[in-house]
Amino acid sequence: MMSRLPDAHRLHLLHSVLCAVNLGAIVLDGDRRVVLWNAWMIKHSGLGHDKVIGADFFSVCPGLRGGRVESAIQQALYNNFPSLLSQTLNKAPFALYASPVAAARNERIQQAVEVTPIAVEGAARHCLIQINDVSIAVGREKLLREQAMVLRTQTFADGLTGIANRRHFDVAIEKEHRRAKRGGTPLSLLMIDIDHFKAYNDHYGHQKGDQCLIQVAAALAAMLKRPCDLMARYGGEEFAMILPETDVEQATLMAEAIRARTQELAIPHERNHDAAQQVTVSIGIATQKVDAPADIEALIGAADRALYLAKRNGRNRTEALLPC
């Protein structure tokens, strides 16, 4: 493996290499005393040879007693097995710092450690501890993780029900509104609200309230027929359904189907005011006609007013209004 140098030169070469490598190298003898501590270790630990060579390793690093590093050293010295200490599970076992400034701030280098047995002729087994600085890789992965988190909060799914969220609705209604205007097609909007939902929550508890929302959302979303139709969670117990290319008659049919389907779910609701004491919804319908385009606020406003009318008129019903 090495060229034919005299022994003394070879030894000097190896020594220089060990001092030049960009990682920490510690060698312990069979009694766990330090016999090698390279330049990288001196630089990043602040401990010179006088403090460590010949000393018991655990008096140099008392914090490592009884931990993963000690059991790795045992594995190497007694079982002849190498060990890996990942940064993920062992954040920074050694007190090593990138600079005096970092040391003052007590910011350790992020470390990946390997402990390997080393056979020595005429002596008990030694072990080599290698320490790699992985601070950059750790920083990079942390950044990626944070970015993934941000992306996720910007997605369009409602956390509880899994259907589209308000943000998705806002984007979709803009898109469909523009498309209806350009294409000269009618656009309908349904506002669907669970009747006496606050009373449901109060009576059955919030967990059952959540389950009710999930069930209703799933049932209603399953009724959508075309890819351009959208069912979104608009508010706490309020859903909105965008029906492009749908006129008032068709929208009203859909609304009635939704009202009936909700009743079919037969979710008990002792605090609802209807005779069957089951969960019901009120629905407000607003349609933007081809010959009378309106802006988005007017459309939503009309649907809202229609919903309010449905509630006023006894709930468990649908009402339609035109945007004006």
Binding site: Q75, F81, S83, L84, S86, T88, V138, E141
Partner: peptide
């Protein structure tokens, strides 16, 4: 991720060394 794979490697290292040891 790569760092998490290293954690999995360490877990394997602990369990396998223990069994074989």
């Amino acid at each position: 991720t790569e760092m998490e794979q290293e954690a999995m490697c360490e877990i394997g290292n602990i369990i396998l060394n223990s069994c074989v040891g």
